[in-house]
Design a protein around this nucleic acid. Structure first.
Length: 615
RNA sequence: GCGUUGAUGGUCUAGUGGCUAUGACUUGGGCCUUCCAAGCCCAAAACCCGGGUUCGAAUCCCGGUCGGCGCACCA
């Protein structure tokens, strides 16, 4: 069993992750989050909100998961989010149609499905597997299609990313932020892609959760006002150059921006912020790096793009966050399709006096001359440059609707004017951190997962019984030596632990009466309700021996366990057990809820929380 | 989508034409004055789906579904 299998086995067994529709045999690319999985996921999302919404001030919006066609025409998903496929009629194998004709025609990637079919027919391209004939090429679009309204309705698509919502709402958002750059907005929600072959568990799904942030900045100023916050933070950067040499370089954000490894401060700040977030939710910093997109994999409009990647045992380095400077591409695209200018008016510090060339058609004369066309002629005149106008003496030629017209120069005035300009319209650039929550969820699970040798652990933590354990281990080894190598793997007691950080652990405190007896259960239940009043996530468990319950809680990553025993009845104290060290302290019930709150949220030192206690 | 391989209680697994289908762990109920899965009693729980061959299929054959891997595809 590799780590992936172990993590998945635990996830299934303990209610983190289940295959969807299992009752009916399941369907690929869909997963259910069980009770603990849901909670863990929500806490990851909540931590993300704390970072982006509360700290960064990028407010959250919520748009429909179904989008109308125009949105995805503008975004390019209707045309571009698909691949031309072509199936062999003999062996049914599907191929990328553009790949098939790569060697027999130019610019195969730009051809339509129809053209591809034509080329395949003309050049007699045969199936590379069996030599069979090909059927027609067709576009396989990765978007789920649906119909809005009854009948044929209106074409709609399930959104393939949440980002478009922020772009479509740009004007409203701009108004909300009182038209002042920079501003940002986020969205956490489901997106859908009809993957041809979903694989790798929760790494590639057909329905998945994204947390995306779009930060609109002034393209002329990509400095970050709070850059100093992370400037000296060291990051593992796998830059374009680093990838050629195959090495990840550790350097500070400041260094990276100054030397041009990272394009600018805003991007640098957001990469560092991502690093901070991922560490907070429990990613192992040693298995985390930022990889820069290579020139040819970066979208043509992007200036710079970095992926946060985590190392997993089975899948290697997996992308979990993309942080890109998408420039003004998206806003321009929506402006074009919607025929609405999308910009922010930016006022200058000082109004500028600008000299410019102005053309003023005389409508009083143009009107009678050209009647209905007068407006179009005037517009055409306005488009002319100073040179064009001064070159043509008496007669000015313009083209309107393909028709060449001659206009006498006395119907138009032109002159240089000096005007006061106090600002200009700016199409913001977009910095986009885009998180794949499901992948992060898996990463958190895998990085938190640990199998420990209990005996060794006891020694490390100085627990009672450690010496006996050591002796027992020795005698065991001697026995094995006598027996020979036959049983290489002795039955070492293993402990499965999820080392969730307290920021995301789906259960924060377990309350355990030592025995299932009323006199112990009652005070335990009393503790439970007091912890719940502090909004702590509590698990009451009285089933099985105490050791078994500790292990159960280790497996679901409960950071602290409170045990009520007979001493509790005498002196009003309970034991608190720390998941990671397995150490215990004795603390009074009085104020226990505040104590645990401090341990969990205020980073209070465990040993300081009570008297060390060893059974 | 193709190839390959697998599918038995919650989990891991034995069985490969003739059962009432192993075993372990887990789980539930109870007992237990004491802390790291190992005490005692009791209980619950499975042959992926459809078709075929056969007197008889969990077992053989075909198809499907789901999982792993490789190819292809993809962020």
């Amino acid at each position: 069993m590799d780590k992936y299998e172990k993590v998945f086995e635990l996830a299934k067994r303990r209610g983190f992750l289940w295959n969807s529709f299992e009752l009916y045999g399941g369907s690929r690319g869909f997963y259910d989050y069980g009770p603990l999985g849901s909670t863990l996921k929500r806490r990851i999302e909540q931590t993300w909100r704390e970072f982006y919404v509360i700290q960064e001030g990028h407010m959250e919006i919520e748009c429909p998961t179904i989008g109308i066609e125009e949105v995805f025409i503008a975004s390019g998903h209707v045309g571009g989010f698909s691949d031309p496929l072509c199936e062999c009629m003999n062996c049914k194998e599907a191929f990328r149609a553009d790949h098939l004709v790569e060697n027999v025609t130019d610019a195969a990637g730009t051809l339509s499905a129809e053209d591809l079919t034509k080329v395949i027919r003309e050049k007699g391209v045969k199936c590379p597997e069996c030599g069979g004939e090909f059927g027609e090429a067709y576009e396989f679009n990765l978007m789920f299609k649906t119909t809005i309204g009854p009948g044929t309705g209106r074409q709609g698509y399930l959104r393939p990313e949440t980002a478009q919502g922020m772009f479509v709402d740009f004007q409203r958002l701009s108004r909300f932020y009182r038209d002042k750059l920079p501003f940002g907005a986020v969205q956490i929600g489901k997106s859908y892609r009809n993957e041809i072959a979903p694989r790798q568990g929760v790494i590639r799904l057909r329905e998945f959760t994204q947390a995306e942030c779009e930060i609109f900045v002034d393209p002329r100023n990509k400095k970050h006002p709070n850059f100093e916050r992370f400037a000296d933070r060291e990051l593992a950067l796998y830059s374009q150059k680093g990838q050629q040499q195959g090495e990840t370089i550790r350097m500070t954000v400041r260094e990276a921006v100054e030397t041009g490894v990272i394009a600018h401060e805003v991007l640098g700040y957001n990469i560092a912020l991502t690093n901070e977030f991922l560490t907070k939710v429990g990613m192992n910093p040693a298995k985390l790096r930022f990889r820069q997109h290579l020139k040819d994999e970066m979208a043509h409009y992007a200036i710079d793009c970095w992926d946060a990647e985590i190392e997993t045992e089975r899948f290697g380095w997996v992308e979990i966050v993309g942080i890109a400077d998408r420039t003004d591409y998206d806003l321009k695209a929506h402006a074009r399709v919607s025929k609405t200018d999308l910009y922010v008016y930016v006022e200058y510090d000082e109004p500028k006096m600008v000299t410019r060339f102005v053309v003023k058609p005389n409508m009083g004369k143009l009107g009678p001359l050209f009647k209905g066309k007068a407006k179009a002629v005037a517009d055409a005149l306005k488009q002319l440059s100073e040179e064009e106008l001064s070159l043509s003496k008496d007669q000015i030629k313009v083209t309107v609707d393909g028709e060449e017209l001659t206009v006498s120069s006395d119907v138009v005035d032109f002159a240089e004017e000096t005007v006061k300009v106090s600002g200009e319209n700016v199409i913001p650039h977009v910095i986009e951190p885009s998180y794949g929550i499901d992948r992060i969820f898996y990463g958190v699970m895998e990085h938190a997962f640990d199998e420990e040798n209990v005996a060794q652990k006891a020694v490390e933590s100085g627990l009672k019984g450690a010496e006996e354990v050591e002796k027992a281990e020795e005698t065991k080894k001697e026995l094995e030596a006598v027996k020979g190598e036959s049983e290489g793997e002795s039955e070492e007691e293993a402990r499965l632990v999820m080392h969730f950080t307290s920021a995301v652990a789906p259960v924060q405190v377990a309350v355990l009466p030592l025995l299932t007896r009323k006199e112990l259960a009652d005070p335990a239940k009393e503790i439970v309700s007091r912890l719940r009043e502090k909004s702590l996530l509590v698990n009451y468990d009285d089933s099985g021996t105490i050791g078994r319950r500790y292990r159960r809680n280790d497996e679901i990553g409960t950071p602290y366990s409170v045990t009520v025993d007979y001493n509790t009845l005498e002196d009003g104290t309970v034991t608190i057990r720390d998941r990671d060290s397995m150490r215990q302290i004795r603390a009074p019930i009085n104020g226990i809820e505040n104590m645990l709150y401090e341990l969990i949220y205020r980073g209070r030192n465990f040993e300081s929380a009570g008297k060390s206690f060893n059974f």
